[in-house]
Amino acid sequence: MSDASIQTTIRHGEAEFGDYFALLKPRVMTLVVFTAFVGLLAAPVAIHPFIGFCAILFIAVGGGASGALNMWWDADIDAVMRRTAKRPIPAGKVTGDEALAIGVALSAFSIIFLGLATNWLAAGLLAFTIFFYVVIYTMWLKRLTPQNIVIGGAAGAFPPMIGWAAATGDISVASVLMFCLTFMWTPPHFWALALFVRMDYDNATVPMLTVTHGRRSTRVHILVYTVLLAILAIGTGFTAIGGPIYLAVALVLNALFLKGAWDIYRRNEEMAEADNFAVEKKFFKLSLLYLFAHFGAILIEAGIDRLGVFA
């Protein structure tokens, strides 16, 4: 074989390691890791630090695997949306088949290893989460109904429940409340995003609420869900995972979040376009802080309980 027969151009699929890592949606993974970590530490059962570390790692890998399967299935719509066009598959760095193989392999790995390291309830919940995100949300609902975000949000809400189950081996009111917190937070978070990236979803023909029911209706939906979320978030302060610090954080952030939702509700498209959706973008940024601060406060309350500071 002569040198001339060796291919010297970069083939499709000659990806760097970082391209494969990008398939796992690292930014989404931070949310998964953090909420699972809080669920694990808020549980009233002590877990060996190394097993706890492994549990979080396997939950993160499972979340990443579902991200890879999501990118495999959604490569066609990712290619037409500006926000997602640079993802590894539409950018031509990784092939769809590679993403599928990585997604399936990491799913199986994470479920089996979480089961072996902790218990099979936690592993079952992780398996259900991957199934829910990939099959129920990505393959079925995302392109079918404008309620895609509401129902699909459940997949992102499972990690604290899995963390809790990894430590205790069961499901409790507290872990369901943490699930509900993320579940109710997801719709206003994504609908605010949909308001200022409208053209993307239009081009991809994804039936976002903004596309199917109009932007006025989306603003109403954001307000209604934010009110329901505020009731849930503040109510959680009076349960076993709440406490004075959580309640203080919840009161401040929910007041700000309600104000943001009210401002979005009062605006029309002319006002939004005049300041380039400043209020909607501010609400979206606040929503990120909102979730991290609530779970951070739950973590602090769990630490206080362990140390017996207020005992």
């Binding site: 040198d3 060796i6 010297t8 000659e14 760097e16 390691f17 494969y20």
Partner: peptide, 19 residues
């Protein structure tokens, strides 16, 4: 056309193998 030692393709594969 020959493959140089520092070809982009080698860098990518080396990085992937390391990973």
């Amino acid at each position: 056309m020959s493959l140089s030692r520092q070809h982009e393709l080698h860098k990518r594969r080396a990085g992937r193998n390391k990973g």
